[in-house]
Amino acid sequence: MVDNKKCFVCGSNASVQLVMDPVKYFYDCPVCGRYEYYVMFAELTEFNLNHLGAYLAYNGFKHNFNEYRYFTTMSKEQCDEYKKEFKNGNISHGHPVRLENENVENWYPKSFAEKVDYILLYLNSKNPYWGESIILEKEEMISCLFVDRYELKNGKWERRADEALLNQAYYMLRCLAEQKFIELPGTWNGSEYNRPIILTPTGYARIDMLQKNSSNGKNVLVAMKFGEDTKILREAIRQGIHEAGYIAILIDEVEHNDFITPELLKYIRDSKFVVVDLSHQNNGAYFEEGYAMGLGKPVIQLCKKDVRLHFDIAQKNTIIWETEEEIPERLKNRIKATID
């Protein structure tokens, strides 16, 4: 049964489906996208809801008839099972992407200046035509401007008063206007939402610079063999990247509409560095490493002990591992020593 309710995270009107086994709600929110909320365990309450709201606005899986991905807090094992069914043609469960608190916190901007950059890129994505007005609905504006909807009281998240939210949103917009990144209507005094925002030439210049230098971000493309036999390896690599403060991008978990190779190359170009595991002599991993090196991207190379590397890269400093358990700590230390 599909019903219209409020989004658990942002409060927008959302399409909600109740599933009884186990008891969970499946949300399709215009701001946060598609995600599951398990009633029995209330896992989403373990997240910082202010950070989660922004994360979903920027990274959520929005409505698309050809796209079945959605965020979930179900176990990794259940996610893997549903993904296997999906690849075999059973789309009833869709394609789950595990939502983890460390992903949210690693992504969330650590500085005010970083928030400004994120906001400019978001505004640019909402309007393909230069000089035209951008109008955001209330909850979308709150999320994309990194406004704190909630405050934690006695261990529970409680929504702040609308006036406080509006004041914070207007403060951020005024900061953008004072830096001449956007124009606000002269009659707007911050007393209401849904007012037009226009990116200025200075704003577009900043956006151009950010897009050209997107390697300053936190995404890290992982090149390796994907399959049942590498599940432990991929999670070990993901953990090491996360513990170093970055976000692991595994292409089979990413929403995309293009053919896999162009999308993969885009993520390599946009990554700050690339992590490659060559333990399985995977031709794709070699290709992705070569492409990254050609772009001048730092590459951290891993390989299992006793696996012979191709002579072209055999001399490269490589993390040689014997068991997956040792990878997270060694990879984190290598990132901290060579990237940060």
Score class of each variant (00 low, 15 high):
residue 20 M to S: 11
residue 327 I to M: 04
residue 89 G to H: 04
residue 67 E to F: 00
residue 49 L to A: 02
residue 194 N to S: 06
residue 82 Y to L: 10
residue 149 R to L: 04
residue 72 T to P: 01
residue 216 N to R: 13
residue 322 E to M: 07
residue 142 I to W: 02
residue 327 I to L: 05
residue 30 P to Y: 12
residue 304 K to E: 13
residue 278 L to P: 00
residue 48 N to S: 09
residue 182 I to D: 07
residue 46 E to N: 09
residue 197 I to E: 05
residue 124 N to E: 05
residue 187 T to A: 15
residue 164 A to M: 05
residue 269 R to H: 08
residue 175 C to Y: 14
residue 162 D to I: 12
residue 5 K to V: 04
residue 38 Y to M: 08
residue 334 R to T: 11
residue 249 I to C: 15
residue 326 E to V: 13
residue 250 L to R: 03
residue 112 F to L: 14
residue 173 L to E: 04
residue 259 F to Q: 11
residue 198 I to T: 05
residue 61 F to R: 04
residue 293 M to G: 12
residue 181 F to G: 00
residue 276 V to C: 05
residue 11 G to E: 04
residue 316 K to R: 13
residue 285 A to T: 01
residue 67 E to K: 04
residue 275 V to P: 00
residue 167 N to I: 15
residue 202 T to M: 15
residue 122 Y to L: 07
residue 44 L to H: 07
residue 148 D to I: 01
residue 299 V to F: 07
residue 177 A to V: 12
residue 241 I to K: 03
residue 130 W to F: 13
residue 147 V to Q: 02
residue 186 G to I: 04
residue 34 R to P: 00
residue 304 K to L: 10
residue 169 A to F: 01
residue 227 G to N: 12
residue 333 N to D: 10
residue 247 I to R: 09
residue 209 M to H: 15
residue 80 D to W: 04
residue 123 L to W: 08
residue 59 N to W: 05
residue 80 D to P: 03
residue 16 V to W: 11
residue 68 Y to K: 13
residue 12 S to I: 02
residue 226 F to P: 02
residue 171 Y to V: 08
residue 175 C to A: 12
residue 326 E to I: 14
residue 243 E to K: 13
residue 206 R to E: 02
residue 28 D to Y: 01
residue 250 L to Y: 01
residue 223 A to P: 01
residue 228 E to G: 14
residue 35 Y to D: 08
residue 210 L to F: 13
residue 260 I to F: 01
residue 115 K to F: 03
residue 68 Y to F: 12
residue 57 A to S: 09
residue 180 K to N: 03
residue 334 R to Y: 09
residue 197 I to R: 11
residue 228 E to M: 11
residue 277 D to H: 03
residue 224 M to N: 10
residue 197 I to Q: 07
residue 199 L to N: 00
residue 39 V to A: 07
residue 340 D to M: 11
residue 340 D to H: 13
residue 129 Y to L: 09
residue 263 E to P: 03
residue 87 K to W: 14
residue 212 K to P: 11
residue 136 L to A: 06
residue 141 M to W: 08
residue 13 N to H: 15
residue 104 V to N: 08
residue 85 E to K: 13
residue 51 H to N: 10
residue 37 Y to C: 01
residue 130 W to Q: 12
residue 116 V to D: 04
residue 132 E to L: 11
residue 59 N to P: 01
residue 325 E to G: 14
residue 53 G to W: 06
residue 261 T to K: 10
residue 134 I to L: 05
residue 286 Y to H: 08
residue 191 S to L: 03
residue 107 W to I: 06
residue 133 S to Y: 11
residue 135 I to K: 14
residue 52 L to V: 09
residue 62 K to I: 01
residue 62 K to L: 00
residue 263 E to R: 10
residue 64 N to P: 02
residue 259 F to E: 12
residue 194 N to L: 06
residue 144 C to G: 03
residue 242 H to P: 00
residue 45 T to L: 15
residue 77 E to M: 11
residue 296 G to W: 02
residue 31 V to L: 06
residue 174 R to M: 08
residue 301 Q to A: 10
residue 124 N to C: 06
residue 3 D to G: 13
residue 194 N to F: 03
residue 69 R to F: 03
residue 89 G to T: 05
residue 73 T to D: 02
residue 207 I to G: 00
residue 42 A to L: 08
residue 100 E to L: 15
residue 125 S to Q: 05
residue 198 I to R: 10
residue 284 G to L: 15
residue 134 I to N: 00
residue 192 E to Q: 10
residue 134 I to V: 02
residue 133 S to V: 12
